[in-house]
Design a protein around this nucleic acid. Sequence first.
DNA 1: CATTGTGTGTAAGTTTCCTACATTCTGCAT
DNA 2: ATGCAGAATGTAGGAAACTTACACACAATG
Lengths: 322, 322
Amino acid sequence: MSKRKARQSTSDKNAENEAPEETGGEAYNKPVPDILSQIKDSYAELRPAERRVANIVLADVTFSVDASNAEIAKRAKVSEPTVTRFCRAIGCDGVRDFKLKLAQSVVVGRLYLSPNLPPETGENGSPLWNVVFAEARNALTAVERSIDPKDIIQAAELVASAQQVLVFGLGGSSTALAQETQNRLFRYGVLVSSHADPYVMKMTAATLKPGDLVIAISGTGRTREVLEATTLAKHYRANTIAITAPDSELAEAVDLALSVDVPEFQDILKPTASRYAFLAIIDLLSTAVGYRLEPNAHEMLRRIKYTVLNHRKGKVLEPLGD
Amino acid sequence: MSKRKARQSTSDKNAENEAPEETGGEAYNKPVPDILSQIKDSYAELRPAERRVANIVLADVTFSVDASNAEIAKRAKVSEPTVTRFCRAIGCDGVRDFKLKLAQSVVVGRLYLSPNLPPETGENGSPLWNVVFAEARNALTAVERSIDPKDIIQAAELVASAQQVLVFGLGGSSTALAQETQNRLFRYGVLVSSHADPYVMKMTAATLKPGDLVIAISGTGRTREVLEATTLAKHYRANTIAITAPDSELAEAVDLALSVDVPEFQDILKPTASRYAFLAIIDLLSTAVGYRLEPNAHEMLRRIKYTVLNHRKGKVLEPLGD
DNA sequence: CATTGTGTGTAAGTTTCCTACATTCTGCAT
DNA sequence: ATGCAGAATGTAGGAAACTTACACACAATG
């Protein structure tokens, strides 16, 4: 198939050579369905001939995206109208609609590997290379889909109006995330401290007053000492937020749960991907707090930046501290 | 358009109701071109009528994906063959090929926002919502592209063969990441400790022997105390690794630099996205260490899991500790 | 066994895309 | 200014792809 070489049209003015931008921030405004999942979900209800079409599609997606109705029918040993019926049976308008959706679906599939992916064979030498990245991305997507921005705003309001904020996390990763939460919020002028000593957690929880705030971080929502200290804070009428797994004891125990279920491949040697999700939540929350506390947040950051700048030479816009 | 209701075929055996999986890990094996960029890049070389087609497509991508050749031609006020020619001029086989690629292209566009995105106007109320996610994803992509898996394996070898490992990080986020590195490596039986006190850092660095290891974490690569302690460790013949920015003083000072340049939008109220990149590097490294130290790593994890399990009721496969 | 309903293919119709040719326009040379 | 050649584009018809209608076969039920 020969392609004609594109040529310059010499009569055009230079200004007319610039392509217009796509309209708006999001040029495409329709949802992208996961058609492969739809095929699998509908499989049990398909008729026998339609199943043979499904088998062909699932067995060779690359072929199916480009193939005509007739080519698919031939491979599946069915009639052409049966292919149309298959497309209708899985929820598409027809073959054309199916093709577009299939093409889109595989792009999504390229970017997000399914959970429970078997371990990489280490073809580049670094074990689980693709898994680590895929799951980090899945974790971010899970946050995007399951966290309501209104909850972020509400949480930021609780932080901004609290006289003091305590952050609790135990077990290693949650400890580090609690520390990171402190590290983010103090920069905006929030009186915040994180604790990893279960006794200090309970003692400081007992000093809280109405309007104060506890942010509890737990990947499983089941860490006993975090739950106990958070319940104690509630007893003393402090507000409570949890960053945790959905439908967990901790999620049920607090005023506002920022919870997310992160699907991941269970390899005992691989760190958990939920830290990416939790870090994203902390970033969303701290950004919202920063904006909520303007212009004071800016003043606090200006002071900190000025201090760090004097302590060390560096670019003005690089991260504050590290 | 009526859709026929999917029905159960009662003559099928239950085992035949399960859909087969798509073949292989990556079911679709063709590259996904960015057709919108191709249109913009080819714009200057397009003929006048073809440009009118391009204008229509860029002005309304949603319409264009689903519209027939005739519908596009009508809107652009050109003939139908001109639409075919337009598709050929931008590198596609024809209109069908163009359509598939356009559908795919918009999915990619949906998932990656460009760096230096202007601030969101807060349409969902949570400030910089999209920026936080886009930049986290960009950070992960930056790691994927700039880190050599061989360096991960080499770093894991240095960890595995060290008698002790020190992790240094200062400034808040690097502190938490250093702690997280400790939290990951100790689980495989590595003798590892992290320090955030600059005096303790130097003192412990002075105790190192040849073959010991320092992992230094710094977003900018310019934190003075981290640099000094790392240099001191080198002086005492310890091996040194840095997780830092490329071409920085720290990157130059160590034996092996795992460095990555993370493009991000500079908003003083938004946390830095490089933490996602650094966390991914730590995860890759710790996974590689775990695999390198098999079967001892498994034994260590078994003991830790057993301890945590007895301390708390939970699912067997959930994250170790938090 | 007869009847009814479901599943599927064949054949024909419709839609969409592509090719071939004719016409118009533009640029260059004389 | 005129003529010629090449490029651009549209019209008309052909080919490809998809869909609809109807016939036939098979399965289930009474």
